[in-house]
């Protein structure tokens, strides 16, 4: 994928958010394990930890609106549609497995992870076959 100015800006926004999220996860894990805070504090910490992830979704939306190269934007949007379909398919299949085959419950948190995997797979498919 070429490096458009909008892609560089997206990367510059995603990297610090990822670092903040990972550092936050580590700090939260240590704090919760060693300080044993009350439930309400754990809830607040969890909500705070989700902020950088939600911000990542916002950054992706900003990228789509800021990308000036219409062909690159179209490909990215198509990849997003594919990854959304991939996520719906995986979560639906897993849901049915949970319902009828007693498969272990899939944490909702993984929805974003699955979506990102779908985005990467769609991008990879285009690179190899398109």
């Amino acid at each position: 994928m070429p490096n458009t100015p909008a892609q560089r800006i997206m990367r510059q926004r995603l990297i610090p958010l990822t670092v903040i999220y990972l550092a936050g996860c580590l700090a939260a894990m240590l704090f919760i394990n060693f300080a044993g805070p009350p439930d309400i504090v754990v809830y607040l910490i969890s909500l705070l930890l989700s902020v950088p992830l939600v911000a990542c979704i916002f950054v992706i939306w900003r990228y789509v609106t800021e990308e000036k190269d219409e062909y690159i934007r179209m490909m990215f949007v198509q990849n997003m549609v594919v990854s959304t379909g991939f996520t719906l398919a995986v979560t639906t299949i897993w849901g049915v497995l949970e319902l009828y085959a007693d498969a272990p419950a899939l944490p909702i948190y993984y929805t974003l992870v699955i979506w990102c995997v779908g985005l990467a797979l769609s991008h990879l498919y285009r690179r190899i076959f398109a």
Binding site: P2, D69, E70, Y71, I72
Partner: peptide, 11 residues
Amino acid sequence: LGVSRQSVNAI
């Protein structure tokens, strides 16, 4: 044109 080379190639 201010677009990527891939865009020109695709067109």
